[in-house]
Design a protein around this nucleic acid. Structure first.
Ligand SMILES: Nc1ncnc2c1ncn2[C@@H]1O[C@H](COP(=O)(O)OP(=O)(O)OP(=O)(O)O)[C@@H](O)[C@H]1O
Length: 733
DNA sequence: GAGGCAGTAATTTTT
DNA sequence: TTACTGCCTC
């Protein structure tokens, strides 16, 4: 193999270096993932490394699959096992093997965020809170914050958190949460990492065993590694193990999940002999795109300067748009797509990605695409595996594998509706608790004549349900029939298909999703990706948005986080508004948070290969209680604020009150020209915030100057939803 | 216990 | 705009 044909000089050096500890630091699109893939192949082919003694960590399952395939294609004639997987899958596998160390069976259940939330809800009701009390969110955040650092309740000294109002209760809830997880043989995502870390640190025998398994550990997207993951890796290293990491500190976008921005520096401190290799040629984007991205990220203070260049030529200009409304923003995107389709030979929809800060921003785009029949798929927000129907079915399946999984059982106990309501459930929960049984076990072992407060009818319904589940559990365990067949028949038997068919609006789509899930179960077992039904069920929870991506000819809509590591010829970034991107809530976190938003924008910009479209809108925002302004990122990227682009959009400049609203600072503002004919000087007005007032002046027929009883004179948009004319009854004189 | 309606409150990112 | 609660009726 002529390695130098596929790699530039720096890349070649990175791939072939004999150093034991290596870090490759490089900007977006410089071939980091490519280098890691070639390195893996190179180690096996030229260094004679044993494929099964290498461990490569990627950020998503999809990236793992691609790297696996890519590496194998570089190694013709070689087959066998490469260990390419995410941290979480690695830990799940580890714990499957070492389950007895935590007192769990191999077929433990992995709880996702939704399961966690349900569990917390059931716990807080025991404290007298309502199921939807805000304590639920607080508890999830509290637990998440500490658990991502690898901590457990016993490690907590509450005096360190005086600023958290309900800390005492929260800690109690957390303890109950841990007990509930234990009783259910369940682990949440943080447990996967934290438990493995603790085992490796505390159990020498196991540590040695695992240290002896790998000669080479390689990590992609290292900049988003957190300290627990880092510890974990460190404990997998013996003195001769090789460690190879690649990353771009400017692309750290998961600090809110514990990623440590300084992790690359930390590594250098820990391994002073580390060889650092810098790649600075970008192979992905045109100069125009790259320049904008470089200028933008240069505004971050807390960073190591890197100079990325490209030989691709300046390419096309960045296209900008400032739309009047969210709807016209979406229409503009559709128009541009149509234009591309006509003007670009060989264009296909799959070449296009539409990126945004938050999932809710897709709504107008979806509506417009639907009417214009532009094919699209949405990723991020709700993952396929997080959809209600998919989770329902998986919850049914989970009961076949783990009878202690109360969260799953509670989920499906009345789906489809069986007449089991909150009352019956509460009775069941308390009786099962007394006997120290899970809900399922309690029902299963409940004798006909045993005393119970369950209604006879409810008792019969539950018993029938559990007996059905038992029979399918036995069939799956016997392993004589194809699991996908049994699993499918089971879903029919519990009445779930009938339930979906009754959903007139979305029934068909939901049935299709379930069919797809069953197809995937079938394929995963057939291809040997997982060996047992139980293992598949365990891993389904960790599937990500990227894992769902197919190759259909459709436009891809996704959050920037989901787009990490991907590239597209044409990229639209929509909703590039102040307060949206950067997100106003994240800005509470101060400068650091703003810098992360900027990195996120940097990631977004650098997904584009040929042409980048940046767009914002002036729609009224209920959250900001103002019309949206273009994002500061435009200017920071060296671009002018975008001008209106569509033919209806002839904005005018208005003077508007700022937040504190004494007419203060003047802002450039475009507003929808609107008729305000029904306002007259002297009219009485009612404002949601300022209360009652009288109209003193009308400016440009659009702005009212109102003197409020309690707040003095304010200038208000006449068409603003918060202001209303008071019509006095009978006042027609 | 289920379903429908009206009024109110508030929109981050995910393994 | 939407999504979610609380309240009402069957
Ligand atoms: N030496 C090379 N010759 C040709 N193409 C290359 C070369 N190096 C990288 N590329 C191409 O550049 C693109 C970006 O590479 P890659 O995804 O590995 O970059 P990256 O640094 O991992 O990006 P990101 O920072 O966005 O994750 C890919 O399409 C890759 O095939």
């Amino acid at each position: 193999m002529e390695w130098e044909k596929h790699l530039n000089k720096q890349q070649l050096k990175a791939v072939t270096t004999p150093s034991q500890y290596v870090r490759v630091i490089a900007g977006a699109g410089s071939g980091k993932t490519r280098v890691l893939t070639y390195r893996l192949a190179y180690l096996i082919k030229e260094f004679g490394a044993a494929p099964w003694r290498t461990l490569a960590i990627t950020f998503t399952n999809k990236a793992a699959k691609e790297m696996q395939e890519r590496t194998m294609s570089l190694l013709p004639g070689n087959e066998g096992n490469l260990n390419v997987m995410t941290f979480h899958s690695f830990c799940a596998r580890f714990l499957r093997e070492e389950a007895q160390l935590i007192g769990y069976p191999r077929n433990f259940t992995i709880y996702d965020e939704d399961d966690q939330q349900r569990l917390i809800k059931s716990i807080v009701t025991r404290y007298g809170y309502k199921k939807n009390d805000k304590i639920v969110g607080e508890a999830l955040r509290f637990i998440g914050m500490l658990k991502t650092d690898g901590l457990y309740p016993d490690d907590i000294d509450l005096r360190k958190y005086p600023y958290i109002p309900d800390r005492k209760t929260l800690l109690e809830i957390w303890k109950d949460y841990e007990t509930a997880l234990n009783n259910a043989f369940a682990l949440d995502f943080d447990d996967l990492l934290a438990k493995v870390r603790l085992i490796l640190i505390n159990n020498e025998e196991t540590r040695t065993k695992w240290q002896n398994r790998f000669d080479h550990i390689l990590i992609d997207e290292f900049q988003d590694t957190n300290d627990v993951q880092y510890d974990l890796v460190e404990n997998l290293l013996k003195s001769t193990t090789n460690l190879y990491v690649v990353g771009d500190p400017d692309q750290t976008i998961y600090t809110w999940r514990g990623a440590n921005q300084d992790i690359l520096t930390k590594m250098e401190r820990q391994f002073p002999s580390v060889e650092t290799i810098i790649l600075n040629r970008n192979y992905r984007s045109t100069q125009n795109i790259l320049s904008a991205a470089n200028k933008l990220i240069a505004h971050n203070k807390d960073r190591i300067k890197k100079d990325l260049y490209t030989e691709a030529g300046s390419g096309e200009k960045i296209v900008q748009n400032n739309a009047l409304t969210d709807r016209s923003e979406a229409e503009w995107v559709a128009q541009e797509l149509m234009a591309l389709k006509i003007s670009e030979p060989g264009f296909s929809y799959r070449d296009v990605a539409i990126l945004y800060r938050s999932a809710y921003l897709t709504a107008p785009i979806e509506r417009v695409f639907m009417t214009k029949r532009i094919p699209y798929v949405v990723y991020g927000g709700i993952r396929f595996y997080a959809r209600a129907e998919v989770k329902d079915v998986v919850a049914y399946w989970r009961m076949l594998v783990n009878r202690k999984d109360d969260v799953a059982f509670t989920r499906i106990i009345n789906t489809p509706k069986r007449g089991i309501g909150d009352k019956t459930l509460a009775t069941l929960v308390s009786e099962a608790r007394k006997q120290e049984y899970s809900l399922y076990e309690y029902i299963l072992y409940l004798e006909d004549d045993a005393p119970t407060d369950l209604r006879p009818n409810a008792k019969r319904i539950l018993k029938d349900l559990v007996l059905i589940m038992e029979s399918y559990r036995e069939r799956i365990e016997a392993g004589l029939e194809a699991p996908s067949e049994v699993a499918n028949e089971y879903i029919e038997k519990v009445g779930y298909y009938k339930y979906l068919k009754e959903d007139e609006e979305r029934g068909e789509e939901r049935l299709e999703n379930v069919a797809q899930l069953i197809q995937e179960l079938y394929a995963a077992l057939k291809e040997g990706q997982f060996t047992t039904f139980a293992e598949y069920i365990q891993n389904v929870t960790m599937y990500t948005s990227q894992d769902e991506m197919g190759n259909e000819d459709r436009v891809t809509l996704m959050t920037v986080h989901v787009a990490k590591g991907l590239e597209y010829p044409y990229v639209f970034i929509i909703g590039l508004n102040d307060g949206v991107f950067p997100n106003h809530r994240s800005l509470d976190g101060g400068l650091e948070a703003l810098e992360e938003e900027r990195r996120l924008a940097y990631v977004a910009f650098t997904r584009a290969q040929k042409r980048l479209y940046l767009s914002c809108s002036n729609e009224y925002s209920y959250v900001l209680s103002n019309r949206k302004q273009p994002s500061p990122f435009f200017k920071e990227a060296g671009l002018e604020f975008p001008r209106f682009s569509s033919r209806f959009e002839f904005g005018r400049r208005y003077e508007l009150p700022t937040k504190e609203s004494d007419g203060g600072e003047t802002r450039d503002f475009f507003a929808e020209p609107s008729e305000v004919a029904d306002w007259q000087i002297g009219d009485l007005a009612q404002h949601r915030v300022f209360g009652r007032g009288i109209v003193k002046k009308i400016i440009d027929n659009t702005i009212l100057e109102i003197k409020f009883d309690d707040y003095g004179i304010k200038k208000i948009m006449a068409n603003h939803h918060a202001v209303e004319k008071i019509v006095l009854e009978g006042d027609l004189s």
